[in-house]
Design a protein around this nucleic acid. Sequence first.
DNA 1: CAGTGGTCTAGACCACCAG
DNA 2: TGGTGGTCTAGACCACTGA
Lengths: 240, 240
Amino acid sequence: MIDKYSPIPIYHQLEEYIRGQIENGTYPFDTTIPSERELAERFEISRMTVRQAINNLVNDGYLYREKGRGTFVNRRKVEQKLQAVTSFTEDMIERGLTPKNKLLTFHIIPANGKVASILNLQEHTPVYEIKRIRIADDSPIAIETTYLPANLIKGLSEEILNRSLYNYIENDLSLKISEATQEIEAASAKQQDTAHLQIEKGAPVLVISQTSILDDGTPFEYVKSIYRADRYKFVHKMKR
Amino acid sequence: MIDKYSPIPIYHQLEEYIRGQIENGTYPFDTTIPSERELAERFEISRMTVRQAINNLVNDGYLYREKGRGTFVNRRKVEQKLQAVTSFTEDMIERGLTPKNKLLTFHIIPANGKVASILNLQEHTPVYEIKRIRIADDSPIAIETTYLPANLIKGLSEEILNRSLYNYIENDLSLKISEATQEIEAASAKQQDTAHLQIEKGAPVLVISQTSILDDGTPFEYVKSIYRADRYKFVHKMKR
DNA sequence: CAGTGGTCTAGACCACCAG
DNA sequence: TGGTGGTCTAGACCACTGA
């Protein structure tokens, strides 16, 4: 089980062993695993080495310790998925909904002052402007306007949008998406949005403005999305 | 600097010392701190104890190690903070605003079904219910209702709330805050909230529901906050 | 009381990096 | 080659838990 002469560190082998025992049910949730001293004796290794393995598993959320009682298997899901940059489509699939889109407009326009400033461009630089209705389970959920610098995101087509914009940027254009900043605020639906979202004027909407950047810091995307408050809420996990 | 006979663990004292040196600029960004052996010798402690301190600082993002070269000060702490669990007070200070609170109610009540379910308690288990007006730069920004299990977060007082609840939980109760999940949605102001927030009925508000858990997975806090949409937006950074 | 995790020691050998 | 972090040992005493 543990090979003291392997180039793989002993604590790492022990980690894998314990994780395996958790996953195959030998150590059920909320029960103790063998004590540090027992593991040390069983594998003829030092207790400090056992502690190093257990420390890592505690940090990864697999185990938790209680003074004087023992080390327990954590019942909590280990997924620990922090918020990652995802597209609407990826987001909806994760929520178990079927996403669809309805393209309203798709053309190149000169950037106005606000868009130019956000995308770090000169005013009037050509940008794609794409307006879409986002649909989940056959009912409208958001109206979304995307701006992309036309000189950076070249060769965009409606077909690419329907597949995956992010895949196109990363795979075909070989650009590296690094991170995105979102501003989330509440507002009341304006007259021009009521028809597309099938809501009354003044109904609450969630407005999410996202700016995405490449790994060299270049902004490549600005998206403003207006979500129906009754059909969408934003969920977010944070660590202390 | 280091008191070997203090009840505070040596590694923890060393952590604070190194963090202090980073913050006051003695160890600038991207430069090495003294080697593990040098720190051990200087403070007449074991190298393993030094490693424990440095391990914790590496996990917290203050330092990073490079094999054969040394341990370096990490330059970016701000980004990591954007995804971290913070209190209203911490949040406002970061935004450059002066936070204040007005306590509306503070008592222990039996948990109703919803609160009990969220906090993983039996119905009617005693919980603190704390209602506060959150004020930034002398004008109301949110109304916040907090629920805490009375049997877990013991000895709460108004004075503690005005200092820092999270400090109290972490330092005085020795509990480890692990993570929090937020649900963010838009709504229209209800009649009962208009007076406290000084807005019209039906005005847009941002509703943030936060559930926080300890490192063993126990939920210890449920907070529902209703923010004035015209004075608050939620900002959030994500990585791909 | 015996057993547990928490802290700590004073060494050791290794791979890696820089000069 | 000398210094660094990475790994590991074989002990030790402590506070805490539960029977």
